[in-house]
Design a protein around this nucleic acid. Structure first.
Lengths: 201, 201, 201, 201
DNA sequence: AATGAATGAGCATTCATTCAT
DNA sequence: TATGAATGAATGCTCATTCAT
């Protein structure tokens, strides 16, 4: 098989993918600061120096893990929400996607919940870009619900959106830290029930 | 000056306090992993070696910051909640305390929201001990409300407690990362309104 | 240049050799405890970190110096003694080799006589392994002489062996510490004369 | 009891003695470089700072241990040898004193055999001063024996003295490093027998 | 004389990154 | 592209020594 053909078959790069996957695994297992570039390279089956052909440095690996996952996450979210009109059902779908996605990949969840928060630098980048977009999707959904009259209007949509995100986020963090394994996705229903209906009888 | 008088004047320990305060400031500004012990010592106005007379190491400073703040936090919470009977009002008080406390000390909030989460090791300690106690206070309040008939009973109290904590937590994290300053405490009312009353019209 | 050619030119390892030689020089000049790894690296013409590619740490350099020299020492001893039958002549040859070898490399002698004794840890390792082998060679030679009837039999061979070793060892130590330089090897004859013939007239 | 009287009763200083004794114990147990001044102070039952009222520093403790022991050693040697005329009997007495003295205090022996040799600095001081005096006593004894006609004259007295010292020294070192305990003093007779009579039948 | 809290210089080791091959 | 040997900057911690009390 010609080189070009092989490239085409394997996507832009075999190695870049392998390094990203290795990064998720290693960072989740040992923590970002305690992980060595050599660990990631070894896990990916490449030489240390090869990492620098695909990434600027250790930080860039973490950054790229986040970027790629978040892009996929948002794309999938938009795709799934397109076909839903009812804002309440959209909220339910977001919860379901959020928890099923992270619940399906514990290592990725650990990187998202723990490692990405270990530095204000990352948090700021996180906050500034893709995270804002994610929150915006939730906010707009709530806003639409308020315009429809389905949701109460005496609540600022951005606050409600953050609450919803925070609630989901906490479910994931608790799930990661829990000593006993349990399925994460089923919690989506509970969260949505309280978020939409409130706690009062 | 007599020994007792000096003690009284300086508190139990001048230096330990100074180092803890310096730790909060430095860790918040530069991140735990990027902070040097020398930075903390210098900020506290003591020699590098002095840090090791009061703490086992860099980790122990972070740990101690958390322990002390959490103990105060929980003690204040219990004290304030004693005089309140209505579970809904207790929930409101918790939100108010949570946001006013962290809203009053941005550096401490940064350490709590960002630095303490940067390692699974700390998260596990965090989760295991004091955090569990905090969550338990919320859970019991909700449970009481359910027994009273004030809160709906088709929701697991622990899930609702995590949601509530997650919502508050997200308010704090967003507040920290926000480029524009704004008061944090006023958000307590909004959070409680949605949590108790739900979003549906 | 082909890999094999380079290997041949550089020997198995250029750097490892250079570091060992530098270690002997630096340890002899400043003492093991007062030598910095950076001193050894600098003397060897490599970066600090490179030392750790070839040795586990500072201790391991000292250990390796000893192991290599002792192995050579013993190998040479066995080789030379093979062709000699007379135990008295073997004793003479041992003294000659011992003093000529150490007398030819003052730095190595310093490391052997001074630095290797600075810790019970090293002394125990020293005693346990190669040193015991060296002493055993001497002991067997004496034993053979006793069986031949050449040596008196009312002396325990192991005691005599230790005495002989101790006498040679003291010659070396005094030679090292002496302010005036003098050749070490010629003392072999004197030592052997007294050891074999005794002091009494 | 008046202060002066107490001083008189306790000797020049209680504390100095205590620190020296503690030094021997601690240095023997952990090695000079691995011993902390604080360890010695604690073992001596004094505060860290007190050590510096009696000694210039850590080095000075080791130095003083050596000086005091060596002075006693030499004084005792001279005292015992005065009453002996026969050089051969004097040689026997030196061996006996050397081995009985060090054999009676394993910690002191460890400090002498191991710790004092860990640095060329100490070895040079050692060599220069008291050790030279000790060797001189042996040398003169041999010289006298040669003049008497009791000892052979074709051997340089200083070489023979070093041999004798080296042989005794090796007995002590082996005794220290031996895993099995055995009495040291009885070896004196063996050493003297070989030294005086030689190994040849 | 005695204390012991405070000091701060000193150093072995790690590991992200480079670059000759 | 890929390698991996080599680099060298960076830092947490120790401990001999000081000095105010």
């Amino acid at each position: 098989m010609a080189k070009a053909a092989k490239q085409a078959k394997n996507g832009i790069s075999d190695k870049r993918e392998a390094i990203l996957r290795a990064g998720v695994k290693v960072f989740a297992a040992k923590g970002f600061f305690n992980s060595k570039v050599a660990d990631v390279a070894s896990e990916a089956g490449v030489a240390d120096g090869t990492v620098y052909l695909y990434f600027k440095g250790k930080d860039d690996i973490l950054h790229s893990i986040f970027d790629r996952a978040m892009a996929e996450f948002i794309a999938e979210g938009r795709r799934e929400l397109e076909h839903i009109d009812d804002p309440a059902k959209q909220i339910a779908k977001i919860a379901e996607l959020h928890l099923s996605r992270l619940g399906a990949d514990r290592s990725l969840a650990v990187v998202f919940q723990i490692e990405l928060r270990g530095s204000t630098k990352f948090m700021e980048a996180f906050s500034a870009a893709a995270f804002a977009e994610y929150l915006e999707i939730i906010r707009k959904t709530i806003e639409r619900g308020q315009k429809d009259g389905a949701f109460r209007s005496d609540v600022k949509p951005i606050i409600a959106a953050k609450m919803f995100y925070g609630a989901l986020d906490e479910m994931v963090t608790n799930w990661i830290l829990s000593k006993k394994p349990y399925p994460l996705e089923p919690l989506a229903g509970e969260v949505v029930k309280v978020f939409l209906g409130g706690l009062n009888a």
